[in-house]
Each structure stands twice: as C-alpha cells, then as structure tokens.
Write a protein that binds this DNA or RNA. Structure first.
Lengths: 214, 214
DNA sequence: GGTATTTTTGTCACTGAGCGCCACAACGGC
DNA sequence: GCCGTTGTGGCGCTCAGTGACAAAAATACC
C-alpha cells in the first residue's frame, strides 16, 4: 500500500487493487470535505470521517496520514481536469469558449464546487492551504508542456518555464479570488468564474498563447 | 519557577509585553530548530522544546499551536529581512551587488542558515512545508509593492500581482534549490546563493524590474 | 469446486499533541 | 496593605496517529 497520491485514475484493468484504492481515497475525500464544510475542520474528527465512509478509524489512517490531507484527491481530480482541458485548448479559439465547450459530467461539477470550498477554507486553515498549494504546484510542469506546445518551443527553455510559472501564478490567484467571492456570499456562477479565468490567462500571457480569435 | 532574578540588570518593564512575547517566541523557535536538526522533527517532543527554553510544556502550547509552527518566527525573520533588502533595491544596480552590499549582522546569518535547514527539511516534512509555504506567501503582497513601485503602477493591478506572484515563485523555488544543495552536502557558499537568486529574479522578470545595469 | 496465500480491514493499547480549567506567583497601581 | 492583570505550571482530558496482532476478504493455485 503505497502512500503516494495518484494524480489521475489508473486505467489498467489488471491491478484492480490500485484503482480500487484510488476510488476509496476519492470517496473518503468527498465525505471529508462535506463534513469540513458542514462543521468546520477542527470540529470534525477522524472517526467521523471514517464512519461516514463506513470504515474503521484505524483504516482511515492507512489511507491518509492526516485528516487535512483527506481533501487532496478531490483537489487533485479537479486540478487535473482543468489542466487537461487547458491542454486540449485549440489555437484560434477563445479560452472561455473552449472552457465552456468542454464536457462537464455532473459529478465533476460537484467536485469542482467542493474544491472551491476547500480553497476558500484554506484562507484560514494553514493545513488545507498547504495541501492546495502543493496540489497546484504539481500542475506546473504540465502547464509548461502546454505553453511549449503552443509556442512550438522546448518545455525546458527558460522562457517557456517562466511563462508557465506566470500562467500558474495567474491561475492560482484567480482561483483563490473566485473561491473567496464564492464563499463570502457574492455568488459567482460557473460562467463568471470561467470568464475571469480566461481573462487572467490573457493578462498573464499578453495573448502570447493565442487567445483572442479574430 | 523563577525566584531570585539573578539575570541581567533590571530592565524596564514597560507595556512592551508585545516585544517580550516576540522575543520569547524567537528564542523558542531557535531552540526548536536546533532540536529538529539534531534529532529530526518527529523524534522531538514538545516537552523537549519546552525544557530547552526553560518553560513548561503547557506554556509552550500557549506560544505555539503546534510544535512544527515553532519554526515560524525564525523563518519569518529571515524572509522579512530578505524582502526588506529587496525593497531597498535601487534601480540601476545589479541585484546581486545590492544583496551583497546589504548589512548582515552575524546573528542574522545564523538564523538564515537555520532557515535554509528548515526549508531543506520541509522537503520530507509536510508540516514544515506548510509553514514555509505560508510564511513565504505572506511576502507576496510586499513583493507586489516592490513590483508596483518599480513599474510605477498600482499594486492592486492584476498584471502587477501576477508579476509579483511569478517573482515569488521564482524566489521560492530557487531558495528551495539552494537549501537542498546545502543540505545534501554540495556546500553552497553564501555568494553563490545570492548569485543564483539574482539570476532567477532576472529570469522571472525578463529584466523588467531594471536589473542589468549599463 | 476446494484450499493455501496474500492483502485488507478491524480491535486494542499506546504515545504524544494540544487545550480547558484552576491555582499560584509576579508585577503594577491604589 | 489590597487589589486586578498577566504569565505560568499542574492536572486531566480529547483526539490524531501508530504498532501489533487477529479476523476477514480477496486472490492464486490446484
């Protein structure tokens, strides 16, 4: 039982155990976030999370080393999905339109909302903030690939990496802004969030990435 | 505990209770980091830290909510000092020269080395990593001011904040690199660290901030 | 089908973090 | 002297997290 967190669902059929474990972690993650949102982090005990998933407390600690890290799978899933959408972004199309056009299964929407809630909570919960920062940091190399491909250059080039870092910074800041607005009652519907994201990408890249079609 | 105060001459007991508390936290921080470096984090108990400073365990938890957060004061001190030096960076001068030219009291050097050690440990200690990320993140607004001032624009502008976040990311990554090299035996003298930092700043800003004199 | 083996889970006991509560000592003002 | 305030230690508690071992379940092998 490796402690390593898997970023995306294992595809293979054979080692079902791996995928099973991934699903179990995801399930725990969803329940944990639900409880965190309902009662707060400190008010939620590990036992409660375990009960909610029908596991014993001991087993929970075999899946996660701390109760805060329970939020990681959902956070990773959402981040990966977003970066993946970004990767498929065709040239000549406005980013916003592409984001809206992507396929969005309803369960992904729920996870996305949960992730935003976690990001919002992370403002006052250092442990959650650390998870969020680390998860998002893992997306940076992928962003570097996206930038490199778009510019037709090498992902190892300094300029490309810098551009990717800038892009990552813009995406993270905007996501946190949206999460904050969302949590503070200023309800932000999905569309507005996407618009803001695409705007910040445009601002961060000065349009270098090929947004702004015709 | 204390009966006869045979310490130094009676110093003014002003309402400086705030500064006193700050000093006490700093002292705890130094001892905690020393113990963490000597025995590792998990092997160090809160009681040991308390003993090292001559406090009871109960009192330690009044100063810090977790034993890992004991590293925060030294880390903040070092980070603040660095950002402050950056703030005083005059236009038209190479960053590296400015960093070297800054005044560096010997006790700051010890704290700086301790901070690097903490950053190095944070690679494998999630709790320490959380502290480090949060401490450094607090520097971002200040960096935004620096960027804004240098560019003659507003600190609230999205482009400025993005630039500052990029700068922060570059500084953080470089610091972590230096810390890792330092901890892994590849001894990195102070000068080389400063050179690397100024290079990463140049790379992150494309020279926008006005490095590269003449 | 069956059994043997490996993996996963649960139970129990334990350490240690961290806090609530109360008592006590040290200050400073009256 | 008597206060109120503040910092501190002691006691006991809850809960995070782990090690050890047993029960159960999945898997492999026949």
């Amino acid at each position: 039982m490796g402690e390593t967190a898997l970023m995306s669902p294992p595809r293979g059929r054979r080692p079902m155990s791996d995928r099973r474990r991934w699903l179990q972690r995801l399930e725990i993650s969803r329940e944990a976030i639900r409880l965190f949102r309902e009662q707060g982090v400190t008010e939620t005990t590990g036992e409660q999370i375990a009960d909610a998933v029908g596991l014993s407390g001991r087993t929970l600690w075999r899946y996660f080393r701390s109760k805060e890290s329970c939020v990681e799978p959902v956070l990773s899933l959402t981040t990966d999905a977003f970066v993946d959408t970004l990767r498929r972004w065709p040239a000549g199309i406005a980013l916003e339109d592409h984001l809206i056009a992507g396929h969005h299964p309803p369960e992904h929407a729920a996870d996305g909302e949960a992730s935003l809630a976690v990001v919002a909570m992370s403002r006052h919960e250092p442990a959650l903030r650390a998870i969020w920062l680390v998860v998002f940091e893992r997306a940076e190399p992928v962003l570097a690939e996206v930038v490199a491909e778009r510019l037709g250059r090498d992902p190892d080039e300094l300029a490309v990496r810098v551009q990717a870092a800038t892009l990552a910074a813009a995406l993270r800041l905007t996501t946190e802004d949206i999460a904050a607005d969302c949590a503070d009652g200023r309800i932000r519907p999905r569309e507005e969030g996407l618009a803001r994201l695409s705007e910040s990408v445009r601002a961060a890249t000065h349009g270098v990435l090929g947004d702004l079609p015709a």
